[in-house]
């Protein structure tokens, strides 16, 4: 009986491996880079230019709130508990913006989205309840999120940093087109 113990341990280990390895699969079957963000840099460009590391970003004052997005065809993403840096703070680091200026947020996958001053102040967004019925917008903030539901934002979720539109109220859904993933550049454009 004693001589069977190592084999039983091996069997138990294999069973655990089976259960743990269990076919989680690569999401969507694509090539997913490892979540090593040491090379990631965020460029802030306005009247001046500043380049931040992820560590720099996480060292800035944090903003937190509820985030919930919906795609153009009604697919909901969330709800999430979001933590990141208020976009207005990052814009201030780039030299600030005027009333008619715009903030261009882009990512290396070629995606670009633009916010105006009204949106930067948390207004002018369309908001929905969880049933996707339009509701009056509560106060909102745009953040560059690096943490989702208490965990560092993964690459598949747009990490290391993506745009999130947050509210202090739960259940407020916003249009997902503005939730730029993999953000690496924030630029203030003068108009």
């Amino acid at each position: 009986m004693r001589s069977a113990i190592p084999a039983l341990l091996l069997l138990a280990a294999c069973t655990a491996l089976c259960l743990l390895a269990g076919c989680t699969g690569t999401p969507a079957g694509g090539t997913v880079p490892a979540d090593d963000f040491s090379d990631w840099r965020l460029t802030l460009n306005g009247t001046g230019e500043e380049v931040l590391t992820l560590e720099d970003l996480r060292g800035l004052p944090a903003a937190e709130g509820h985030g919930y997005a919906v795609s153009t065809v009604g697919i909901r993403y969330g709800p999430y508990r979001c933590r990141g840096v208020d976009l207005t703070l990052l814009v201030d680091m780039a030299g600030g913006m005027g009333e008619r200026d715009q903030v261009w947020v882009s990512a290396p996958d070629g995606y670009l989205w633009v916010f105006d001053a009204e949106q930067m102040s948390g207004e002018g967004f369309v908001t929905f309840n969880e049933d996707l019925k339009e509701i009056p917008s509560p106060p909102l903030s745009i953040i560059l999120m690096y943490e989702q539901d208490g965990h560092p934002l993964s690459y598949n979720d747009g990490g290391p940093a993506r745009i999130a539109i947050i509210s202090q109220e739960p259940g407020v859904v916003t249009e997902g087109s503005a939730w730029v993933k993999w953000v690496d550049r924030i630029e203030v454009r003068r108009t």
Partner: peptide, 25 residues
């Protein structure tokens, strides 16, 4: 002992072959 070890090897092979095809069940 040999039977148990054999079962373990079989399990390992199963893990290797079934591994994550995105084709569960």
């Amino acid at each position: 002992m040999i039977r148990v070890a054999g079962l373990a090897v079989l399990l390992l092979i199963t893990v290797a072959l079934s591994g994550c095809t995105g084709d569960p069940g």
